[in-house]
Design a protein around this nucleic acid. Sequence first.
DNA 1: TTGAAAGCGATACCAT
DNA 2: ATGGTATCGCTTTCAA
Lengths: 337, 337
Amino acid sequence: MKSTIYDVARAAGVSIAAVSQVINGKGKISEERRAEIVRVMEQLNYKPSVIAAALTGKKTYTLGLLIPDISNPFFAEIARAVEDQVDFHGYSLVICSTDNKDERVERYLSLLQQKSVDGIIIGTGIDNKEMLDTLIAKSVPVAMIARELPGDAVLTVVVDDYAGGRLAARHLLDLGHTRMAVLSEHTKVSSSRERIRGFQDELTEAGLDLPEYMVKTSGRDLVKDGKRLASELLRYAERPTALFCCTDLLAIGALQAAKEMEVQVPTELSIVGFDNTILASVTDPSLTTIAQPMEQMGKLVVDLILDKQQESPPNGTKRMVLKPELVVRQSTGRPLL
Amino acid sequence: MKSTIYDVARAAGVSIAAVSQVINGKGKISEERRAEIVRVMEQLNYKPSVIAAALTGKKTYTLGLLIPDISNPFFAEIARAVEDQVDFHGYSLVICSTDNKDERVERYLSLLQQKSVDGIIIGTGIDNKEMLDTLIAKSVPVAMIARELPGDAVLTVVVDDYAGGRLAARHLLDLGHTRMAVLSEHTKVSSSRERIRGFQDELTEAGLDLPEYMVKTSGRDLVKDGKRLASELLRYAERPTALFCCTDLLAIGALQAAKEMEVQVPTELSIVGFDNTILASVTDPSLTTIAQPMEQMGKLVVDLILDKQQESPPNGTKRMVLKPELVVRQSTGRPLL
DNA sequence: TTGAAAGCGATACCAT
DNA sequence: ATGGTATCGCTTTCAA
């Protein structure tokens, strides 16, 4: 059976208050008593109940993490970074894969609330912004990672998606491409929108156009849809010589399509991904991609939501934007003339 | 502010007992009262506290999942399967990446206990078996997934690792290989041991030997170590023509080593992985590997630990062994003569 | 220093 | 049918 604070108190011949004190290292107790109580606790293998403590107003030491899909390597890596930092502060992490479905988001948000988590980190799109307001009204800390909310007021850690889009475009322009296409996630994903906007702006400044039929939007299964959409693009009479994919997963789909249609990468088609997940380094050819500093991002949101910033980011900072980086591998090259 | 059962009772002009009844759909209340109470609950945006309910003996509706690393695609996919089924039953999942470190395992196990989770699913090696006994003594349900414990008595869902090893060996033997090597995870990982044993037995039966210097053991960073160890093997005067890797991650490292040393795969070196993660399908060449039915495994452990088996697996079943499957891709072929 | 007692939010038994 | 109340395990005044 599980032993309670009462068991310990009884066995040590003291009051539960005394035991509570040594658990929390507060108050004043003589060294002897404390030692004896500690001894008894160990002997009984006593572990204070977080549940009971939480009920008295203390924290649950649990954070929730909402992401589209934990089996997506990008989010798995984000989750790992978050978990490490969360653990560092003595908290646990509840994982919630939403598949970007509003219904799931809603259910999870409600669930986490009922479980009185000490904060919710969101890395998935939120349509129904009301829900967040409800949370905030109940003073549940909320922070966004890798995704933004229209308004603000919510702690946010993102990479500069717009700059990332520009980086990708710049790279392709430098290589001499002029006919480019884009594979996007569902447009309700804020980061994708920004990436495309950046990509587009860079092209425009270079005097290039990005016609609408060169931009394809995917559904939930990134790899499969990426493959399907890329084949469509590759069937155009005037097919693109370069493809910017809003995530590595989409790029992998594109890679598969190219292979299947016997279109050489990068000779006949250059492909740029986004995220720099482990996948980018193992594909063939390996993937040129825009890297996000996932580890740093994870660490940052946690410190932010827990209000434990070590550094001196101007206190009260609500929004941190990190720099993306171009990682050139083998999937991009000069277009054939 | 958060509203409590008292707020609802007051606003509805009833007792908290009545409110409790409608929450749990138990007891007897007139339809009018129930309707009124429901109305008030919604109006106040009231969500019953799982914490408080748990304290009165109800469940926390939370399960823990211990795995080596959530950013490892294999475990990420397992986690997703587990999460889906857990969610299906109305539970949440706490993720714990242990890096296979005893110290972390211990901490997490203790933490989950304090949080009164309703069960712990373990997919990581457990050295200190005492700890599990302690858990079981406190009647915390425990189940193993993709990993085994020496004794038994613990619910377990695994793939037949031994058969998987044999499958790999059979495939390579059929192709005509005679000089083979193995890349293993740390030997304290039970599944790796079994895979090697199966591989070895199949070779032995074919009259082949697997000398000790042909078996290399990796540390924590599977990809990097896989690469390093594979290079070592490839530097042998009589280097192996085929390599069996206990996980896809190791195989990827091997692939990288081969590429770097300009050893052609599969012409000069055949590589077989294990797990059939998404990675196996995107490498170049794509990876021949032994597939584990991850989704099914995840679903099974959850139903087992929650005691909600739909099917009729002879009640009281403690150990379920699923069949691995050989997936042939491009990383294996006949050896050069 | 130490302990008694009042909550925290919900459940469940027992009267009414 | 409905409500009063003890109880869960722990924290936190407040007296002693």
